[in-house]
Design a protein around this nucleic acid. Structure first.
Length: 318
RNA sequence: GGCGAGGUAGCGAAGCGGUCAAACGCAGCAGACUGUAAAUCUGUCGCCCUAGCGGCUUCGAAGGUUCGAGUCCUUCCCUCGCCA
């Protein structure tokens, strides 16, 4: 009864999606996406979404759930993912969270403090101040109202400074004072987190190959199509990896070969940040990828057999 | 062959006699992250170490001037523009 939730995490291009599919087929599961950009409709090629035809009948959740002009957030994800997981479990199936957005995964499994979300008007005002009088000015403001946050947040980190001030102005209490109330969205569920990783040079090769494939598959046309459909150039997903650089190319910032190279480079850096993040994730069981390789699948299956079947499945983690 | 510009750390690029191991940008490396996270931000970045206003070797090459030279002089090598 106490069947855990499986999570498949790790840097980009390690084969998470493939592994998730294989696990889903073997253990009667459904997949819950944990990628911050795949939630957006229409952004398919650059996010390397597993397209419906390739899903082998396995239900995928939290892919294509919002319009590109909408703002999706970690908090929203945590709620949506928790709901999806409960529904999957209610169907008696295995929930498999798969993706590389560490912050979303943490928001789901450890939670975000219960407090106010983004306030567009307030943020607009704060950002205006930042652009007119400098970020440092905002940081000094934060120092007045919330000394502790000012200490932990870098004086130039606009996003965090704005959020801290936003929370303070909205609640009258420093953001750090809210942290104690943080709780997981799924405190009752056990999770078996699996991490996939590859040596840096392999990641680099795979990433480079993937970028070329993305262009060959029509990345640029996809972007043109989105723009033609009225998706604003400053839509959230356009600001991220792949799309940002490709969009710049369409605007003539640089030629295609160097754009491909730049995207591959950014991917490598992103993979590094992901690794740093996931390394700190407790209880993560690392496997040498790639996720589609038979040896990885065998090793993962061995672990899951232990955790999902027999008595192993009844352990509950603290 | 003649004239002009230039050769500085992985790359690009400052520097024009001392406080230069050498600004700055990029890449690299290390890291932070509680509602934009594929985002945002930080540190480090010649070599050595007991990590310091520490030691050592650098600024195309070789000489020279000077108390002191990326910085001035001479010769040489190499690039790149114009003329032939």
């Amino acid at each position: 009864m106490a069947r855990p939730v499986v999570a498949i995490l790790g840097p980009t291009a390690t084969g998470k999606s493939a592994l998730a599919l294989s696990v889903a087929e073997r253990y009667d599961g459904e997949i819950v996406n944990c990628d911050s950009t795949a939630v957006y409709r229409g952004f398919d090629i650059g996010t390397d979404k597993v397209l419906p035809a390739a899903r082998r009948g396995i239900p995928h959740h939290l892919i294509d759930v919002v319009d590109p002009s909408e703002e999706y957030t970690a908090a929203q994800y945590a709620r949506d993912a928790a709901r999806a997981i409960r529904e999957i479990r209610a169907r008696g199936r295995l929930a498999i969270v798969a993706g590389g957005t560490g912050f979303y995964y943490r928001a789901l499994t450890r939670g975000l403090f219960p407090g106010p979300g983004r306030d567009a008007v307030l943020r607009g005002r704060l950002e205006l101040i930042a652009s007119r009088r400098g970020v440092q000015f905002l940081h000094r403001m934060l120092l007045r109202f919330d000394k502790e946050s000012a200490r932990r947040i870098q004086p130039r980190d606009v996003k965090r400074i704005v959020r801290a001030l936003e929370v303070f102005f909205l609640t009258g209490r420093p953001i750090t004072a809210h942290f104690a109330a943080t709780r997981s969205e799924i405190p009752d569920l056990e999770i078996v987190p699996i991490g996939l990783r590859l040596p840096a040079d392999q990641t680099s090769d795979r990433v480079t190959r993937r970028v070329h494939q993305q262009f060959e598959r029509g990345l640029l046309d996809e972007i043109r199509r989105l723009l033609a459909k009225g998706v604003p150039k400053d839509a959230r997903p356009f600001g991220g990896l792949v799309y940002r650089q490709a969009l710049e190319h369409l605007h003539g910032v640089r030629d295609e070969p160097s754009t491909r190279a730049l995207i591959a480079q950014e991917n490598r850096r992103y993979a590094r940040r992901q690794l740093i993040w996931f390394r700190k994730e407790p209880n993560l069981r690392w496997f040498a990828g790639p996720g589609e390789s038979a040896s990885t699948i065998v090793a993962v299956n061995r672990l899951l057999d232990e955790c999902l079947k027999g008595t192993g499945g009844e352990t509950t983690s603290p």
